[in-house]
Amino acid sequence: MAVEGNNDSQSSPRFVPQKWDREKGGHFFHTDEGGDVSLGKGNHPAPNRIPSAVPGVITGKLDDLIAMGRSNSLWTLTFGLACCAIEMISTHMAHHDFDRFGIVTWPSPRQADVMIIAGTVVKKMADPIRLLYEQMPDPKWVIAMGTCATSGGPYYKSYSVVMGVDHIIPVDIYVPGCPPRPEALMDAFMKLQSKIKSDAKNGQIDDLSGEQRIAPVAVADAAPVIDAVPAEVPAEETAG
């Protein structure tokens, strides 16, 4: 039986979940009206009927499930730059025990998920950091620990310091402090975990693998190559 009135999906009656009546038998999806109700059209996704039908079952997207796994086993790259590295080590040691978050250090970028930029980034170190970032497999996250990695900090005026690691690689979480306490680093990781989960929910996961996330770097050698690309393309077209 069709619903009276217009067939506009916006005003169609919402699905009203009901308890599964054992006596009525195996109709998982029934409504009061018992008719065919147009569902899942319009701006709202189709409501999930399984939890209402089978109590005690949680369902979700596979992305959510993967994000849950990812966020609970973040492997950080063993990579200390300066003062903050000492507090980073402290966080991993017996007293603060980072392992309980599933966070363990790994000395190779090939298996690491998170890179903690723990300390001042100087211009000589900029290229190695970028190389390490590129060696890490997707998805990958970066935490800028301390004011030096965030903005240059006390060395803002110095001739050799990069004013924040976000001039080189994209950063997900910034941690204030000089150096941040271990608790602050833990908080950053919890923020990162919720970011990973929410990104999966909101469909942001694709952005993580895109090359657009890598900001262009003004390295002296690389700059002419970037500029030359658009100039060369029309030249080839005309020649062909």
Partner: peptide, 23 residues
């Protein structure tokens, strides 16, 4: 301490300290 291609001698008083710069 510096790298190949660094111009100038930053210990000298005449070398300017940074203002904001993109890197």
């Amino acid at each position: 301490l510096l790298y190949e291609g660094f111009e100038g001698h930053p210990g000298l008083k005449s070398y300017p300290l940074n203002d904001y710069e993109e890197w």
